[in-house]
Simulated assay, not measured.
Amino acid sequence: MPLVELSETALSLQFLALEEGPHFLVRIKGRTKGMLIAGRGFEIPCIAVTGISRLKPGRWVQRLGPFRNGKLFQQQLAVPSLLEFKEDFFEILIRVQDCTDLISPDVDLQEKAGILRTLRRNLTSHAINMQVPEILQMQ
């Protein structure tokens, strides 16, 4: 997991005041593919406000101001399982079904688009496309 170093990132908040091209620099610390020496790092320039979506990452970095020491992420996170995204996945599909005519109201989304079912179906399709013998597809 990349470590965002807050103290160095906080020093770059001065660039948010620029009239032309307000931005900040996210300082990534630690070993990376290009920089294998521990303690080294690099900076990623980020704009204060994104284009069309108008997200304001600069504002969120400023809110981290009081936390100027340490790393942004303090714990080792486990790789999430696919099932952890199930609710979010269905929430989007249900919204599409309710607000558009792209998905018929008669379609049972849990049955037709369940994450595990969709993966299984896609894997079967891929196996057929790759001409895997049917006996091996069932295993």
Rank of each mutant, 00 (worst) to 15 (best):
R68E: 05
L13Q: 07
F15M: 12
P45W: 15
W60S: 09
G21Y: 14
V4S: 02
P133N: 03
V107F: 02
A38D: 14
R40G: 01
S53E: 15
K112E: 14
D108H: 11
I135W: 07
M1I: 09
T100I: 03
L11W: 11
L119K: 10
L136M: 09
E20D: 14
L16W: 11
T118V: 15
Q110V: 11
I52Y: 13
N69L: 09
G70F: 08
F89R: 07
G30F: 03
A78W: 07
P45F: 15
Q97Y: 01
I37C: 01
R31P: 01
L116R: 11
L25H: 12
E134W: 02
F15C: 10
Q74K: 09
R31W: 00
A48F: 13
P133C: 01
L11Q: 13
Q97D: 01
R117V: 08
D98L: 03
L77F: 02
K71Y: 07
F42N: 03
R120G: 02
Q74W: 02
E87T: 07
T118N: 08
I28T: 06
C46E: 12
I128A: 00
G58T: 11
I92Y: 06
E5A: 03
D88A: 10
C99N: 08
R117H: 10
I128Q: 00
M138D: 03
V61E: 01
I44N: 12
C99W: 08
E87S: 09
R117I: 09
L64V: 04
K29C: 01
R31G: 00
V49E: 15
W60L: 12
G30Q: 04
I47N: 11
S125G: 06
D106C: 00
L109W: 05
R95L: 05
L72D: 04
L25M: 14
L11F: 10
L18M: 09
R54Y: 10
N122C: 07
L3S: 05
A10G: 07
L109H: 03
Q74D: 09
V132K: 00
F73C: 05
G114M: 05
M1E: 09
I44K: 14
R120P: 01
F67P: 02
P80A: 13
L6W: 03
L18G: 02
A10Y: 08
M138A: 05
S7F: 04
E134Q: 06
G39D: 10
P133V: 03
L123H: 04
S104V: 01
E20A: 11
K29D: 04
L64F: 02
V132M: 06
H23P: 07
K56S: 13
K112C: 09
L102F: 05
I135M: 08
S12Y: 14
L3T: 08
K29M: 06
L102E: 05
P105T: 02
L119F: 13
I135Q: 10
L13T: 11
Q139T: 12
Q139R: 11
L6Q: 03
A113D: 06
T50E: 11
I28L: 13
L16H: 14
M130W: 11
I44C: 13
K56C: 13
F15P: 04
R120T: 10
K71F: 06
L116A: 12
L6E: 03
R63Y: 07
L36I: 04
S81H: 12
M130N: 09
E43Y: 15
V79D: 12
R59D: 14
P57Q: 13
D88Y: 06
